[in-house]
């Protein structure tokens, strides 16, 4: 490695990235440094964005939270539990206190792992991602961001500046499954959002396909079947079908952390539970 560049602000970060397209961005470092310490990766240079002020802030624009890509999870948990309960719940399941103090949504997007726990909530909530470069800023729906494991639409000269997430219009849930009761990479995860004004459900699944995926059929089904006005209890047939459709949206693999069959099963169970919990919350509200 031959360089270490520190960006002072977003503009500077974009300039540096344009000048060093092969430099690896580093924010919380919780993915980047693991690769470096183990000698598994050897990037040409590091570009530190951990102190870029624009990335470290969040703000509210009408019904949207504009979340700087570099806001660590601890702050999301502490500050955004009301506006973005799904993301905040997911953030709380990530790593440990020390990890959450550093790690960021921008890094989770940059790593683009199917197991990124912040990602299903973004997909479920139909967030969009703001990408900045010297060429300007563009917005990409989170649902279109991922191309494959570790791959996204992010260009060499671009930086994730922010994520624009609709303020929760209703209950949101997130649950994951892992072989340990803390500090685990998800074997499967599910995020569900309810949007009663639009009569819309969001549902996305992690760790069960090459990328986090939207369970579109499950969303459509639930959106139509839920008794938004009467708020009656969910019939078991609805949750069961929803679970089935969520599982059908996945394309899991066997690996050292779990078999494909188990992942699919887990997605169904988690989808059923998260929808049930969200619905209970909605009924109480």
């Amino acid at each position: 490695m031959t360089g270490f560049h520190t960006a002072a602000d977003l503009r500077h970060a974009c300039e540096l990235k344009a000048a060093h397209p092969d430099a690896t961005l580093i924010a919380g470092g919780t993915d980047v440094m693991v690769g470096l310490n183990f000698g598994h990766t050897s990037p040409a240079a590091l570009l530190d964005v951990s102190r870029v002020p624009e990335l470290r802030e969040w703000s509210r624009e009408d019904d949207t939270i504009v979340l700087g890509a570099g806001v660590p999870y601890t702050r999301i948990v502490d500050e955004l539990g009301g506006a973005l309960p799904g993301l905040a719940r997911a953030a709380r399941t990530i790593g440990s206190a020390q990890i959450r103090n550093r790690a960021t949504v921008g890094g989770n997007l940059g790593t683009a792992s199917p197991a990124g726990d912040a990602l299903p909530p973004l997909l479920a909530a139909r967030a969009s991602i703001e990408l900045a470069s010297l060429r300007g800023t563009r917005r990409v729906p989170a649902r279109d961001f991922f191309l494959g494991p570790g791959r996204s639409v992010l260009a060499d000269d671009e930086i994730v500046a922010a994520v624009r997430i609709p303020v929760a219009a209703g209950a949101e849930q997130f649950a994951k499954l892992g072989p340990r009761n803390a500090m685990v990479i998800a074997v499967a995860s599910v995020a569900v959002t309810l949007d009663p004004p639009r009569r819309r459900v969001g549902c996305a699944v992690g760790s069960a396909a090459p990328t986090p995926v939207v369970a579109g059929d499950a969303e459509t089904f639930a959106g139509a079947e839920l008794d938004w006005d009467g708020r009656r209890e969910l019939p078991a047939s609805v949750t069961a079908r929803f679970a089935e459709l969520a599982a059908a949206a996945t394309a899991p693999i066997d690996d050292v952390r779990g078999t494909a069959g188990y992942r699919r099963h887990a997605v169904a169970v988690l989808a059923r539970r998260t929808l049930t919990w969200a619905w209970q919350e909605y009924r109480r509200s």
């Binding site: 649950a175 892992g178 803390a182």
Partner: peptide
């Protein structure tokens, strides 16, 4: 509960 921090059950 089982799952711990993963938030995977309400004791169902």
């Amino acid at each position: 509960l089982p799952g711990g921090m993963s938030n995977s059950t309400r004791a169902e």
